[in-house]
């Protein structure tokens, strides 16, 4: 029997630069990477990284990267709607990484529950049984889409931990409020803190997910560190970022965009190519980070392609009225 011993100059397979990375990196990318590396090291030494609990996560084979074509990390982290840090897509990447601290981070689970919780996000990850990776489609109400490899845990696990009472019919999510470090909040572009909500059966659906990471790394501040909601069959604005409070209620919570402009944004916000936004069509979507400059559009799928998992939640509901 031949037992191979590694020579001391041999590196593990994990240290090898992939051919793709080797080929695509030009001098500018290299400089950028070095710059980010230095910034990352500085951040780490200050203990400012968001939730690291459970990383690296294993891919959930039901939602694999191989089934979809994940958007490049560069675009996922540079093209953000996070109005707390400005309304322009490029602003959150800059402004959410200036004064805002996402570590340590406490989450409160409260309302009509038997087991209220108030704990650090990393403890929450532990109690939820660790994290997994899921690759989901992401469709914005503005008619663009991405594919994101999220790390996190099913929202149903958090619901089970809280043990809601039978009177709990809805889940209300509240984001952080810190106008001093969030320039969008101090400018008052929306009413803050940002609020979102789900019906409790939606919250317990297998797809509803609490994300704490993207591409195997703690979720960047501009994407909603350290934990955010991901409901891939709904428009992106339902995916509330940087959650501080999860409250079980008897009444339907009023979500921020519905309150701001109820004629255009509703409570359900299910992706639906047949129900237009008052100002634009929802029948198709622009693919973010497409390699083709001109042919980068695809038809939008009912429930964003998750009809099988969620259609039963809405039997008998008029989706045109309950947009």
């Amino acid at each position: 029997m031949f037992i191979r011993t590694k020579k001391d100059w041999e590196l593990p397979e994990s240290a090898v630069t992939s051919e793709q990375a080797y080929r695509t990196h030009n001098r500018r990318d290299f400089l950028k990477a070095v710059g980010l590396g230095a910034a990352g090291a500085a951040l780490a030494s200050r203990g400012l990284l968001a939730a690291t609990g459970g990383l690296p996560a294993k891919e959930n084979p039901a939602f694999p990267a191989s089934a979809l074509n994940p958007t490049a990390e560069e675009f996922i982290t540079s093209y953000n709607n996070f109005y707390e840090f400005g309304t322009a897509k490029e602003q959150p990447k800059v402004l959410a990484n200036r004064d805002w601290k996402t570590e340590p981070w406490t989450v409160e689970v409260t309302g009509l529950v038997d087991k209220p919780l108030k704990l650090d996000v990393n403890d929450l990850i532990k109690q939820a049984g660790g994290i997994e990776e899921r690759v989901y489609r992401h469709r914005c109400v503005e008619a663009w889409s991405m594919v994101v490899p999220w790390d996190g845990f099913p929202l149903a696990k958090l619901v089970a931990l809280a043990a809601p009472k039978s009177t709990a019919k809805f889940v209300k999510f509240t984001s952080f409020l810190d106008p001093k470090s969030a320039p969008g909040q101090s400018s008052g572009n929306l009413d803050y803190p940002y609020v979102e909500g789900l019906r409790i059966d939606e919250a317990m659906n297998e797809l509803a997910f609490i994300a704490t990471g993207i591409y195997g790394k703690p979720i960047p501040n501009q994407n909603g560190a350290p934990l955010r909601l991901v409901t891939p069959w709904k428009y992106g604005f339902k995916g509330i970022k940087s959650i501080v409070k999860i409250e079980f209620t008897g009444n339907e919570p009023i979500n921020t965009w519905k309150q701001m402009q109820g004629s255009e944004y509703g409570f359900y916000a299910n992706v639906n190519p047949n129900v237009d936004h008052p100002r634009w069509s929802q029948a198709s979507e622009q693919i973010i980070g497409s390699t083709s400059l001109l042919r980068s559009r695809q038809p939008t799928l009912m429930f964003n392609g998750y009809e099988k998992q969620v259609a039963s939640l809405y039997t008998g509901l008029d989706l045109r009225r309950n947009y």
């Binding site: 560069e74 675009f75 982290t77 540079s78 093209y79 897509k89 490029e90 990447k93 663009w144 622009q286 973010i288 980070g289 400059l293 001109l294 980068s296």
Partner: peptide
């Protein structure tokens, strides 16, 4: 190149 522009250059 600006990533936030390249994400959707035509827009």
């Amino acid at each position: 190149p600006d990533s936030s522009v390249l994400a959707d250059p035509l827009k």
